Simulated assay, not measured.
Amino acid sequence: MAFTLATWNINSVRLREGLVSRLLSDEAPDILCLQECKSPVDKMPLARFAELGYGHVVARGQKGYNGVAILSKLPIEDVGDKDFASLGHARHVAGRLENGVTIHNFYVPAGGDIPDREKNEKFGQKLDYLTEMRDWFRDSRPEKSILVGDLNIAPREDDVWSHKKLLKIVSHTPVEVEHFHDVMEAGGWGDVTRADIPEGLLYSWWSYRAKDWSEADKGRRLDHVWATGDIAGSAHSSRILREVRGWEQPSDHAPVFATFDL
């Protein structure tokens, strides 16, 4: 069984219903995982996506903030969610395909602007969230699993436009990167995107603040596709659809794709 999966922080699924529909029509991934849906599940435009062939949905939502959804052409069973760091946020949901593969869809807290938990509660929440992810995966080590989402950390020097300038900027600080790798190690996760594209600058997010985001190209790779070691070798054809960032009224994130032969 081969399937293509994509992950995309959509920054409001209702506002950008047309962009989601365009991606589903143009690229036709078997599974699309969305983050920052900013909508209760009953208000998400799921009927439109079902018309395009994505009738299987596993989602968690809330009004105006957060929210995660898995849209699938393939039958998928809802296998729950976890409220890491007890934030009461819709930031995680998991689904299981008929072949036994579990897909975790995450939206890790951004962490605010100041990388100091004493001065910035949101940064502390981010670190606590990652710590609880680490502990959960350590206690119940996943098998035959894929983890995707906006993890809000660009771990490598070539995942940001300037390693030196971003070392003290939230999303690329050493303490965040350490937590990121702790989660990976605890779950036995492999970075599918970088396994396929091991060298070179690679971004999935460009700030709205730049007048010409493409020309400035001050990006970060915040969106990730991971797989457990037992299936990581089946992944291939990773790509980031940079051009989607240039669509009309876009999300500030671009979709990340990977294909799995299982």
Rank of each mutant, 00 (worst) to 15 (best):
L5N: 01
V160T: 15
D113T: 13
V93N: 02
G149D: 04
A59T: 03
G187D: 10
I153S: 07
L34S: 00
R138H: 15
D42C: 08
A28T: 06
R156I: 06
A258W: 04
T259E: 14
L19R: 05
V58E: 02
E143T: 12
A254S: 15
K82M: 11
S140W: 00
L201F: 14
S204A: 09
E157A: 15
F84Q: 03
L241G: 01
D42L: 07
W247Q: 02
E215L: 10
V177P: 07
K73V: 00
T131E: 12
R91P: 09
I197N: 11
P142Y: 08
D252W: 08
I240E: 00
A6T: 06
N99H: 10
D191C: 10
L15F: 03
S12L: 03
N105Q: 07
E51W: 01
N152A: 11
F3W: 15
A47T: 05
P155C: 12
D113N: 13
K82A: 11
D26K: 07
D113V: 15
E118M: 13
S234T: 15
K211H: 09
H172Q: 10
F260P: 01
R141G: 04
G67S: 02
I197Q: 10
M44P: 06
R60P: 01
E51S: 04
P198A: 09
Q249M: 06
V256T: 08
D212W: 07
W213G: 02
H56Q: 02
L24K: 00
K168M: 13
D78H: 09
D83Q: 07
L15S: 08
I103C: 06
E121H: 14
L222G: 03
R245V: 01
P75H: 12
F106R: 01
